[in-house]
């Protein structure tokens, strides 16, 4: 029987990546409700609510590490109550974009940018979103370039950033290759692999 799971994410591209990740477990998971946030503030302020709700139904929450030095520090700062076993809290180091960049072959094919330009260890990138945008800037595919790169210095991402990256995730992103270059993705995968729903008492 499938596990009905709820997703909480920072943005559309995170949510879509989580869905793709869950897809790799065939019919183990069935996505119930999704709670898309606009940035981490929403997750941080509501984390106790989602943790509490996990008593009734499992939640899978993904947030970006961003400026925290390491995941334990973020957890220490955000979480005050013990985490329920049905609450899957994962942190992408440093952003979900690093998970995407971890499939160098796929992203190279998608953008037409040579693999030589990619960071070998995307988790060490300080600002993976910027790295991704800079790679897209070199793309020979005009639609990819225009969708992902900000129109000028007064925007942080391109005008159709999320949808274009969703296309990448859906058609090019290879989970196995990405896991090989991202420990935080590997851990998220393992957690979902070993997860069993704890029925409410």
């Amino acid at each position: 029987m499938s596990i009905y799971i709820n997703l909480v994410s920072e943005d559309a591209i995170s949510e879509f990546t989580m869905m793709k990740l869950l897809d790799s477990f065939a019919s183990k998971y069935y996505i119930h409700n999704t709670y898309p946030a606009n940035g981490y503030g929403y997750i941080k302020s509501n984390i106790n609510g989602f943790n509490q709700a996990s008593i009734a139904t499992p939640f899978f929450v993904l947030t970006d590490l961003d400026n925290y030095p390491c995941p334990p520090e973020l957890i220490l700062d955000w979480i005050t109550a013990p985490l329920h076993p049905n609450f899957i809290f994962r942190i992408a180091v440093k952003e979900v974009e690093a998970w995407l960049l971890a499939d160098i072959e796929g992203f190279s094919e998608f953008t037409g940018v040579s693999q030589a330009n990619f960071p070998a260890n995307p988790e060490l990138e300080n600002d993976p979103k910027q790295t991704l945008i800079n790679l897209a800037r070199r793309s020979r595919r005009r639609d990819v370039r225009e969708d992902i790169v900000p129109i000028n210095n007064n925007a942080t991402i391109g005008p159709n950033y999320n949808e274009r990256l969703m296309q990448f995730v859906s058609d090019f992103w290879n989970l196995e290759r990405a896991i090989g270059r991202s420990t935080s993705l590997q851990r998220a995968f393992n957690k979902l692999d070993n997860f069993n729903f704890t029925q409410p008492a």
């Binding site: 709820n6 409700n33 999704t34 709670y35 898309p36 929403y42 302020s45 509501n46 106790n48 609510g49 989602f50 943790n51 509490q52 709700a53 996990s54 008593i55 009734a56 139904t57 409410p200």
Partner: peptide
């Protein structure tokens, strides 16, 4: 049940319900 629990965990009714 999960909406009730979310409220107990400090969420607002809007944050708990509207995404559905």
């Amino acid at each position: 049940p999960e909406i009730k629990l979310m409220l107990q965990g400090g969420m607002t009714p809007g944050a708990a319900i509207l995404p559905r």
